[in-house]
Nucleic acid binder design. Structure first.
Lengths: 380, 380
DNA sequence: TAATTTTACGTGCACGCACACAAAACTAAA
DNA sequence: TTTAGTTTTGTGTGCGTGCACGTAAAATTA
């Protein structure tokens, strides 16, 4: 018994000695370390019990104004921050996060990446008793989005990660969450003006601007550019609009007199239809480049290949398999990629940090715009 | 007393109920959750005490073969993973990481970013009792690197994060660390063939390849390209070589017959000297583009401006202030940026994970090659 | 002034794990 | 069979925090 105490004393001594921080500089050696002050230490300094310190920290009632002020002062003096890992252990509380994202399909595997990121993050935070439940929907079917939402509200969740693919339906969802005071983060698609805790995704406008830059160095100043928009891209409609306006604003800023032709393509399932519409355009114009503001660049790529139109520069979004094929056979020049894995990962991490340690995230995290070419595709 | 027990039982029940996982699919709802099995649970199943389970988990002696096998079986059946946060709390052990990186100067603020990343990571892991000590050196002075190293070995560290700026000196450092069995990770500069736990930085070869791609779309096929190398870039010499060979290999692969002129510039402090060397080159050749494989693109940029040579495409590395100026006044077209903040952050995180939870990192993490232009510089 | 309520603070257990130590279960020699 | 030694297993304490509960002292009421 005695011996054990001594051993613990020695341990304690080692730690305390170890924690003797030398802040400041000496021989270019910096110690960067935040002292581990415990509520016990604080309690001793304030001549109160740990219970009182705890009450002060959590603003629980039952502390006289006098001691409250004293303890608060000492807490601040020591820059005390609660030890989250001990706290979670003691709290023994579990959190449930819902992830409302599109399901990946063979045709469109984009959303498998955020899902993987979410799963990885969930794995990392499981010891904090945070779990994730997926509610998947068809990104082309707003009904399925509503169904997923209805399934979601059957249970209680502490936070929600949403890919707000459908605007109107998202308003309803948000209304519900706001009423319930449930925090939520948007990923991939930005919805401004709502009470989201944060947004994680690309700055669509700037990505369009960058695409324009790339286009401008590839084509002569006098060229025309086509921007085809596919009807069925119901989802990230706003992103697409933003990308386009970013793209155009580059040439505006440059005071370039090159012409940009918007083109709506009604049905992305119908190859013949696409061909017809594009043939028409090419009859009337000479295009130097095509900017596809969605992930469907491969459709244009296939058309260009089939109709043997060479020397037309093509820039698109996202590294889905068909786009990658386009890159590899030299019909697509650049793809702008938005790190979808990271979006899912970060989304869950931020929500977990918010729930577990009350860490309020930034209002937005813009994922880096990785530029993918035939040459670097394998290293992305 | 009785009441308290009951409350705890209720708590326990809630958690267990909560953990009743429904794996698999139902209405597109997935529960992604790894069950929280404790050593207590395992002990009960195996009809042994938690002490025995603990001994088995950590391969400690004193367990009969029979029970060891039994416990191991049950551990595997439940896919048991120790709860790191409870473990660190119980271990009450502290780890010290040394960070051996160049110091940022007014002239070269690049290394302030990894430092910030390291500080941020340290802050995040402080509750795991991991601390970081900086040993800074002058990136142009190998003596200072050795001094920093000597300061480092005065103390004992559990892991080291190194920017191996000087090759020969790094060999010595590594020899020492290997003997001491201290794990180390390289950031920013790759040193192959050593026992580093991991490398975090750019794939220099691929970045050169990408630069070549960008260059190739900007200049006519018949142009000449200049690659100036500055003598004083002692540090990342290998990276620079790799970048150059990546760059050249792009045009090799393309079977392009354009000419690439290597140029060694002796003294980067002497503007007149630079001007003289470059003037000479421009007298003899017509260059369509210049690829600066170091962070000194701004020197070329200044020359081009001063000598009023327009329409020469310029690609460089790193977003230091002078390079940014070059971007903004349109003399530099592209900068390839290597996310230095992330390198520091990730380096510390990986070492901490390795120390605290024995998580072995990948052998290399290549940071995304962000392409910076005048147009997106403000959003990076 | 006593009885009662309210306020203010201390105490002890639990979270999941690690580890020192106690205890029990064998083993083998006397 | 007893005893000492060895191996195996069980127990208890602490890590830092949260919280239910206990309890003096102070404030209020009768």
């Amino acid at each position: 018994m005695r011996a054990r105490k001594i051993i613990h004393l020695v341990k304690l001594y080692q730690i305390k000695a170890h924690l003797l921080c030398i802040f400041g500089r000496r021989n270019n050696i910096f110690l960067f370390r935040t002292t581990l002050t415990t509520i016990k230490d604080i309690a001793k300094k304030a001549n109160v019990s740990t219970g009182t310190v705890d009450r002060v920290i959590h603003n629980r009632p039952g502390v006289s104004e006098k001691t409250k002020i004293l303890v608060k002062k000492i807490l601040e003096e020591h820059n005390f921050q609660i030890n989250t890992i001990a706290s979670t252990l003691a709290l023994n509380k579990s959190y449930k996060i819902a992830a409302l994202i599109p399901e990946a399909s063979a045709k469109n595997e984009f959303w498998s990446e955020p899902k993987k990121g979410i799963e990885k993050a969930t794995e990392e935070i499981k010891n904090f008793r945070v779990s994730t439940t997926f509610f998947l929907f068809n990104q082309f079917d707003n009904k399925s989005y509503l169904t997923a939402f209805k399934n979601l509200i059957k249970d209680e969740f502490d936070a929600v990660l949403v890919a707000p693919v459908f605007h109107k339906e998202t308003i309803k969802l948000v209304e519900y969450l706001d009423k319930k005071n449930t925090p939520y983060i948007f990923i991939n698609i930005e919805e401004k003006g709502l009470n989201a805790l944060s947004f994680i995704g690309q700055d669509s406008f700037k990505s369009g601007y960058l695409a324009a830059k790339l286009m401008s160095v590839m084509i002569p100043d006098s060229s025309n550019i086509m921007i085809p928009v596919f009807r069925l891209n119901t989802g990230n409609y706003l992103s697409i609009t933003e990308r386009i306006s970013g793209f155009k604003s580059f040439f505006n800023d440059k005071k370039s007199d090159l012409e940009i032709k918007d083109l709506v393509i009604p049905d992305l399932e119908n190859t013949d239809g696409i061909t017809k519409v594009l043939d028409e355009q090419f009859r009337d114009h000479i295009f130097g480049g095509i900017f596809v503001p969605s992930s469907n660049a491969y459709l244009i790529s296939k058309y260009l290949e089939a109709s043997k139109r060479n020397n037309i520069r093509l820039i698109g979004y996202d590294t889905n398999q068909e786009n990658i094929n386009g890159l590899k056979n030299d019909t697509i020049d650049f793809l702008i990629c938005q790190n979808p894995y990271m979006q899912g990962f970060k989304g869950i991490k931020l929500l977990s940090d918010y729930l577990v340690m009350n860490k309020v995230p930034e209002t937005s995290y813009h994922s880096p715009m990785t530029i993918v070419t035939k040459e670097n595709i394998d290293s992305i």
